[in-house]
Simulated scan of single mutants.
Amino acid sequence: MILISVVAIGATVVVAALAWQQYQARQSAPSGVETTSPAEWASGDRIVFRNTASGAGYGHVASVQLSDPSGPRAVTDTACDRVDATEEGFSCLRSERGIAPSYTATLYTNDSQVVAEWPLPGIPSRTRISDDGALIATTAFVTGHSYAAVGFSTATEIHDRNGKGPGNLEDFTLIVDGSPIAPVDRNFWGVTFIDDTTFYATAQTGGKTYMVKGDLDARTLTAVADDVECPSLSPDGTRVAFKRVTSGSGPTVHWTPAILDLASGDVKLLPESRNVDDQIEWLDDGTILYGMPHEGVAGDTDVWQLAADGSGKPEVFIAHAWSPSVVRSAG
């Protein structure tokens, strides 16, 4: 048994070393896209995202001008797995490489100064910042690495700018059909803020998925819609973009982007035939953005755009990008 353990540990070290060598090789090559001065990355109306172009800056926070999404990108020195941004700063979820990996959430100013940092209990999945930057939501996989995995478990937390509570959503009271419940199999993910006291998120229990409305003061999560995952509130506050299971189950589940009208409760499935496993971002009140794997290239992704009213077809918005965040300058 001791020999087997030594061999297993040795194999793990070799795999980790090879992965690190590949990462270093990818980082040392010239960037595969046109770049501009990093000093320009936080200026003007922009899209902030994780750069997935091969070469220098792979995995780093970057931006392009909102008026020219296919133009040169400004790439920072900060590496993140997931990112969300406001005009003043950004939230960064990061995996720290090593034989025993660790995971962190960090709130940065635009000049890369750390405002607050706290550990994540598992693999980074989602992050959102409230419009005024007062609250930061994070979701991590405690077990599993996909929402299609059987037996996955998540931890979703909300922190203030100092890295303090309100804390883990599992400590909130879950209300379904008017009654408080406390199932042991509950999972929460995909927060989208309404304001600094309320938000929407996903709750799953007993094989059912709900959109819940969270109240930070009352510490409650109330189910308000069925079969809504990874909600994203529109800029005008009237609709929620989300992903809905349209076929399959478990590891073969297929998600389709959809729009929920909050006033009527009507749901419109959008014309996207591919499997979309992302928390959607709104470009504006008429267009949504989401990430998809770049065909044929492992580790690469693209950000796509799609009309929220169901007209038109999906189009690439930013190639070699992931985790988009729309930032508009005040005034």
Score class of each variant (00 low, 15 high):
residue 115 V to E: 11
residue 6 V to T: 13
residue 180 P to I: 02
residue 228 V to T: 00
residue 295 E to P: 11
residue 328 R to K: 14
residue 159 H to W: 10
residue 280 I to H: 07
residue 246 T to D: 08
residue 301 T to N: 13
residue 281 E to A: 12
residue 26 R to S: 01
residue 109 T to M: 02
residue 290 Y to H: 10
residue 63 S to H: 05
residue 274 R to N: 10
residue 263 A to Q: 11
residue 131 D to N: 15
residue 162 N to V: 00
residue 8 A to C: 13
residue 119 P to C: 07
residue 302 D to C: 07
residue 42 A to P: 00
residue 319 A to P: 06
residue 41 W to Y: 12
residue 8 A to D: 04
residue 284 D to R: 06
residue 181 I to Y: 09
residue 195 D to Q: 00
residue 226 D to P: 02
residue 326 V to F: 03
residue 124 P to Q: 03
residue 252 T to P: 05
residue 177 D to T: 10
residue 210 Y to R: 08
residue 210 Y to S: 01
residue 300 D to F: 14
residue 264 S to E: 04
residue 291 G to E: 03
residue 85 A to R: 08
residue 189 W to P: 03
residue 77 D to Y: 02
residue 35 T to Y: 04
residue 60 H to S: 08
residue 64 V to D: 02
residue 21 Q to H: 14
residue 91 S to L: 12
residue 156 T to R: 02
residue 231 P to N: 00
residue 17 A to S: 13
residue 53 A to N: 06
residue 287 T to H: 11
residue 184 V to C: 04
residue 17 A to W: 14
residue 17 A to K: 13
residue 320 H to M: 15
residue 111 D to P: 02
residue 172 F to N: 07
residue 17 A to V: 12
residue 282 W to M: 08
residue 127 T to I: 06
residue 30 P to N: 08
residue 92 C to I: 05
residue 119 P to N: 11
residue 156 T to M: 05
residue 69 P to Y: 00
residue 316 V to R: 14
residue 296 G to I: 06
residue 185 D to M: 04
residue 291 G to K: 00
residue 80 C to F: 09
residue 121 P to S: 13
residue 254 H to M: 14
residue 326 V to S: 09
residue 285 D to A: 06
residue 171 D to W: 04
residue 301 T to G: 12
residue 314 P to K: 07
residue 314 P to Q: 10
residue 251 P to M: 07
residue 291 G to S: 12
residue 183 P to N: 10
residue 216 L to Y: 05
residue 207 G to C: 13
residue 52 T to A: 10
residue 289 L to P: 04
residue 9 I to L: 15
residue 194 I to N: 02
residue 279 Q to A: 06
residue 293 P to M: 08
residue 104 T to C: 01
residue 274 R to L: 11
residue 292 M to W: 00
residue 264 S to F: 05
residue 300 D to H: 14
residue 260 L to S: 02
residue 235 P to V: 00
residue 185 D to Q: 13
residue 184 V to H: 13
residue 301 T to P: 03
residue 220 T to Y: 07
residue 319 A to W: 10
residue 204 Q to M: 13
residue 288 I to R: 11
residue 43 S to F: 05
residue 233 L to K: 09
residue 81 D to F: 09
residue 52 T to Q: 10
residue 218 A to F: 03
residue 283 L to E: 02
residue 6 V to R: 10
residue 286 G to D: 11
residue 151 G to P: 01
residue 257 P to L: 06
residue 175 I to H: 03
residue 37 S to G: 03
residue 313 K to H: 11
residue 121 P to F: 06
residue 140 A to P: 03
residue 72 P to Q: 04
residue 251 P to D: 08
residue 30 P to T: 08
residue 31 S to Q: 00
residue 35 T to W: 01
residue 296 G to C: 01
residue 159 H to F: 12
residue 183 P to G: 08
residue 310 G to M: 02
residue 120 L to N: 04
residue 99 I to D: 06
residue 191 V to D: 03
residue 274 R to Y: 09
residue 175 I to E: 07
residue 156 T to N: 01
residue 19 A to T: 12
residue 280 I to V: 11
residue 295 E to T: 15
residue 194 I to Q: 04
residue 213 K to T: 04
residue 235 P to Y: 02
residue 76 T to R: 04
residue 78 T to Q: 14
residue 136 I to K: 06
residue 9 I to F: 12
residue 303 V to M: 10
residue 36 T to M: 13
residue 201 A to M: 11
residue 212 V to W: 05
residue 252 T to C: 00
